[in-house]
Lab assay of single mutants.
Amino acid sequence: VAKRKCPDHGLDLSTYCQEDRQLICVLCPVIGAHQGHQLSTLDEA
C-alpha cells in the first residue's frame, strides 16, 4: 500500500489533526495551517 503524501510539504501523512479531522504531515503543525491544533498519532486516532 502506497503512503499518501501531504500536498503542501510532500511528506508522508503520519499525524491526525483532531480540529480539522484530517491526516497531516509532521511539518503541518510546525510551519503549516495546523499550528496550535490538537493532534493525535495514527495509533491514537
Rank of each mutant, 00 (worst) to 15 (best):
Q18K: 14
D8P: 01
G32R: 03
Q18M: 12
V26C: 12
H9M: 00
D43L: 06
S40R: 10
Q18T: 08
T15K: 15
P7K: 03
A2I: 14
L39N: 09
D12T: 08
E44V: 08
L39E: 11
H37P: 02
T15A: 07
A2P: 07
Y16L: 09
Q22D: 11
G36A: 06
L11S: 04
E44W: 05
H34S: 01
Y16K: 08
L27S: 11
A45S: 04
V1I: 14
A33P: 09
T15H: 10
V1E: 09
R21H: 14
Q22S: 13
G32P: 04
L42F: 10
Q38T: 14
C25T: 02
E19R: 07
Q22K: 14
C17N: 01
V26D: 14
C17W: 00
S40W: 05
Y16I: 15
A45L: 07
A45P: 12
L11D: 04
T15G: 07
R21D: 15
E44Q: 10
C6K: 01
R4Q: 08
H37L: 01
A33H: 10
K5R: 05
D43I: 06
T15V: 04
H34P: 01
E19K: 10
C25P: 02
Q18E: 13
L42E: 14
K5Y: 04
S40K: 10
Q38G: 12
C6F: 02
Q38N: 14
L42W: 10
Q18C: 10
Y16C: 06
H37T: 02
H34R: 02
Q38C: 09
H9Y: 01
A2H: 14
E44H: 15
H34Q: 02
L11F: 07
S14G: 13
A45R: 12
L23P: 15
V26Y: 10
I24S: 03
V1C: 11
R21W: 04
S14D: 12
C28Q: 00
E19A: 09
P29R: 09
Q38M: 12
K3H: 07
S40F: 06
H9N: 01
I31C: 07
T41R: 13
L42H: 15
G32V: 02
Q35A: 09
E44I: 06
Q18A: 11
G32L: 01
A33D: 08
C17G: 02
L13H: 03
R21N: 14
S40H: 13
P7R: 05
R21T: 10
R21K: 15
C25W: 00
D12S: 06
Q22H: 09
T41Q: 13
P29T: 11
L42C: 13
E19P: 04
C25Y: 02
A33N: 11
A33F: 04
T15E: 09
K3P: 07
Q35W: 05
G36N: 12
T41P: 12
L13C: 10
L23K: 10
A45M: 11
P7A: 11
G10T: 03
A33L: 07
R4E: 09
V30H: 09
R4D: 13
K5S: 06
A2V: 10
K3A: 06
K5D: 03
G10D: 12
D20Q: 03
L13W: 05
